[in-house]
Design a binder for these strands. Structure first.
Lengths: 169, 169
DNA sequence: TATTGTTATACTCTATAACTATA
DNA sequence: TATAGTTATAGAGTATAACAATA
């Protein structure tokens, strides 16, 4: 229904308003894309405890050496209290284990299990198909362009924010 | 310190994991960019009641003919109850007014005030500068590319969401 | 004294339902 | 009966603080 009335011309007696429109607003586009991706991704990883955040935790675990809960929380910019809840649920489902760190008995290393690996693989497959649907209008070169541009902006964002993990203490 | 070390290589002795990494994950990039933009935008429009959503409401009001609260809520994909709170705050600050619809006494038309126009102009200026910072690493052509790609994906997203069962399986 | 992880608590945002006044 | 708008309530999600165990 939104597409029916693009509001072609506001009266435009105000010179500053003539080019105003959410359709050309970067933040609006980001909001739409981000929201759509979030909904689609939520469906794709619904089988995982914790949903999208559970998926991020599993991804972080498999994409590096065994680390402490706090290290993973900081990598994902998640609060460490949230990490406790997420790991509780993921461990209860047998997708990962918490193993005492041999050199620091305060810390616990997070390891993925065989079942967790299978669950992550399936979630990644579903997510890949959902991404393909969302990017269906783009040809491969354009999709690659979008990924690269987003990654560069993400890097800039990381530099702009003084402490990206400020809320992970 | 986080930005200095992009985690150049995980050990990668597991063949199935070699290409796994959040750095190349589209959802992760969207999450980072979206989060950064949200934080930056929140600061830019902090002077407006309702913050980013108040900004969206004002933008919607000025970018079309006078409409009902419900019409604006649908355009912005906001809940109509949220719209009530937002308009309460925006009206209390004198940025817009609710005027009874002459042809439907149930409905109320939302109009921006002179003060609201000034506040919106200032917010747009701040937001433009914040956007420029976030996109500082991109040259003008690349920025244009990113905007166009995002808008196309946003259009696809809008089409996908017409079918609510498209999420999963 | 500082840090890892846990628990308890509070606050924000959002969604749902019920209510009114009109149509 | 259906719709525009309001109000009240409940639920996620998230942040803060206090705590125990260890460094």
């Amino acid at each position: 229904m939104t597409s029916s009335a693009p509001a072609p011309e506001p009266p435009a007696d105000d010179p500053g308003v003539e080019s105003i429109g959410l359709d050309s607003d970067l933040g609006w586009a980001i909001r739409l894309v981000s929201g759509a991706f979030r909904r689609i991704a939520t469906g794709s990883v619904a089988a995982l405890p914790g949903g999208p955040r559970g998926y991020l935790v599993l991804m972080a675990v498999v994409s590096g050496p065994p680390r402490s809960q706090l290290a993973i929380a900081q990598q994902l910019a998640l609060n460490k209290t949230v990490m406790t809840y997420l790991l509780d649920d993921l461990e209860a489902e047998g997708l990962l284990t918490r193993q005492p760190d041999p050199v620091d008995r305060r810390a616990r290393r997070v390891l993925i299990t065989e079942k967790g690996t299978r669950a992550l693989d399936e979630a990644r497959a579903r997510l890949g198909m959902a991404e393909a649907r969302l990017l269906g209008d783009l040809d491969p070169a354009e999709e690659q362009q979008l990924r690269q541009l987003l990654e560069r902006v993400a890097r800039t964002a990381r530099l702009l924010e003084i402490d990206p993990a400020a809320d992970c203490r």
